Amino acid sequence: MDEREAFVAMSRFLWQFANRVGDDLLTLLGDIGTEADGGTTDPAAWDDWLACVRSVVDAPEDPTA
């Protein structure tokens, strides 16, 4: 994954969060925090992130989809 693909994945992740929860930045920051064991505060946020990364990596010809 290059920098552009990472940026697109981040953008998708943020838009998905905003569409589901709203524009509550503090909730987002709480959800993506990491625990001492390396896991995220909200495991669903990690799953959402992985899905966004996969969507970009699996379709590099259309990084905005």
Rank of each mutant, 00 (worst) to 15 (best):
I32R: 02
L29D: 12
A59R: 13
A59Y: 10
T40M: 12
A6H: 07
E61P: 03
F17P: 01
E5G: 14
D2A: 05
F13P: 00
V56L: 10
R54D: 05
C52P: 03
L28H: 05
S11Y: 10
V56F: 09
G33R: 11
W46G: 05
D62N: 15
G22D: 01
A36M: 09
W15C: 11
D47K: 07
A6G: 08
A36I: 09
L50W: 02
V21T: 13
M10K: 09
V53K: 00
G38M: 09
V56Y: 08
M1K: 04
T34D: 09
T27N: 14
I32C: 01
G39F: 05
A45H: 05
C52I: 00
F13L: 02
R20T: 04
F7M: 14
G38E: 08
V21D: 11
D23S: 10
T34I: 15
A45N: 06
P60A: 06
V8K: 15
V53Q: 02
L50H: 05
C52T: 01
A51P: 03
V8I: 13
G30R: 10
V21G: 05
T27Y: 12
R12C: 04
V53M: 01
C52L: 03
M1T: 07
A65I: 04
A36C: 07
D24H: 13
L25W: 15
T64M: 15
W46S: 06
V8H: 13
G39K: 10
G30W: 06
D62M: 11
T40G: 09
I32Y: 00
E3V: 08
E3D: 14
D62W: 10
D48S: 08
F13E: 00
L26M: 15
A51W: 00
Q16P: 01
T40L: 12
E61Q: 10
F7G: 13
D23K: 06
D48H: 05
T40V: 11
A9D: 03
A51N: 04
D37W: 02
T64K: 10
E3H: 07
A18M: 12
G39W: 04
T64L: 14
W46C: 05
T40Q: 10
T27Q: 14
V21L: 07
E3P: 01
D47T: 09
E35V: 07
T64F: 15
A45C: 04
W15S: 11
D48V: 04
L26W: 13
P63R: 02
R4M: 12
G39C: 08
E61G: 04
G39M: 08
L28A: 08
V21K: 12
S11R: 12
D62V: 12
D62C: 11
E5Q: 13
D48C: 07
P63W: 02
A65H: 08
L50M: 09
R4I: 13
D31Y: 10
V8L: 13
R12H: 09
P43C: 04
W49H: 00
G22K: 05
W49R: 00
D2T: 06
A36W: 08
A65E: 07
S55P: 04
A59M: 10
A45L: 02
P43H: 02
C52F: 01
G30F: 03
V8W: 13
N19S: 14
